[in-house]
């Protein structure tokens, strides 16, 4: 009897926890959707801001965010996957590898503003890339690397050892075994983890704050060395830096909605990739 009571109590406590989490998240999303949907229009998505950002759209910010995310992908995805393959398949099992792995895990906990400062010091100043799409993309790339590497390593670990052994026993070299009998089964997992990391990076403000994001630009970035507008920073500017709060608040909510849609879209791509490969693998 008493055991049952405890069990019921515990069960309900857990249920309360998950219901609360979903409710809070749902409320935030609903709030943004409700207040932002009114601002969404064709013009909002395709025009640049006008009249001191109280009118017009957010087109340059959308393009800037996409542009910077592309740089992040080009930089972080191959590098992260290569690092994961090395760490999981080739690196000797020793204290050094353990320290490296631990450091990578810890890097994912470093506040994003620290990445921003690092980006200024390395990309903007030392490498003279200036405040630009390139600097910001590379900075966001650094931010996503721990995620990419960790997710890719986990994906590689899910491939059974018997696939590797089976290939080796047939006379495959180590790289042949990895390339033909490990990577094909790990890549979907690697990609999903990577996309989740990218989705996070796309919404970051602090790392791009000093490395290339501009307060306001009436034109689009025309090279990797241009400054750019970005959705998260634009949102930040509208909400905290603008004097006419009443006029820009709807636009801020509209921007937030577009940003969330973008992130959800990226996550959706991850889900589709996973689903597609799972079906294929049967």
């Amino acid at each position: 009897m008493k055991k049952d009571t405890v069990e019921t109590l515990g069960f309900n406590l857990f249920r309360l926890g998950s219901v609360l989490v979903v409710l809070i998240l749902g409320f935030i999303l609903f709030d943004i959707f409700y207040k932002g949907i009114g601002a969404i229009s064709w013009e909002f998505l395709t025009a640049e801001p006008r009249m001191g950002m109280t009118e017009g759209g957010i087109f340059p910010a959308i393009v800037g965010t996409v542009y910077v995310t592309v740089i992040t992908v080009l930089f972080a995805v191959p590098l992260g996957m290569f690092a994961a393959i090395y760490l999981n398949e080739y690196a000797p099992h020793g204290p050094l590898t353990r320290v490296i792995r631990l450091s990578i895990r810890n890097l994912s906990g470093v506040p994003s503003i620290v990445y921003g400062l690092f980006g200024v010091a390395i990309f903007v100043r030392t490498l003279h890339l200036g405040a630009s799409v390139l600097s910001a993309g590379l900075t966001l790339g650094l931010l996503t690397l721990p995620w990419t590497i960790t997710a890719s390593e986990e994906a590689l670990k899910t491939v059974p050892k018997s696939y590797r052994d089976g290939a080796l026993a047939l006379g495959a070299t180590k790289w042949q075994a990895i390339r033909t009998n490990v990577l094909p089964y790990a890549v979907p997992g690697m990609l999903t983890g990577t996309i989740l990391g990218l989705a996070r990076a796309a919404g970051e403000t602090a790392p791009i704050l000093f490395t290339g994001a501009a307060f306001f630009l009436p034109f689009l970035p025309d090279s990797p060395f241009s400054q750019f507008m970005a959705l998260p920073y634009h949102l930040y500017v509208l909400v905290t830096q603008h004097h006419d709060v009443g006029k820009v608040m709807p636009l801020a909510y509209g921007t937030a909605l577009v940003l969330i849609a973008l992130v959800v879209g990226l996550n959706l791509v991850a889900v589709i990739i996973r689903y597609h490969f799972r079906k294929k693998r049967g």
């Binding site: 059974p160 018997s162 696939y163 052994d165 089976g166 290939a167 026993a169 047939l170 006379g171 495959a172 070299t173 042949q176 033909t180 009998n181 089964y185 693998r281 049967g282």
Partner: peptide, 27 residues
């Protein structure tokens, strides 16, 4: 290549039957 091996737990690769058998030849 000269000393083949069959494992305790059968370990077909998640490929077609043909590709499984052709694996060693192709590599």
């Amino acid at each position: 290549r000269r000393v083949g091996m069959v494992f305790q737990k059968s370990n077909p690769f998640p490929k077609s039957i043909f590709d499984n058998v052709a694996y060693g030849l192709r590599i």
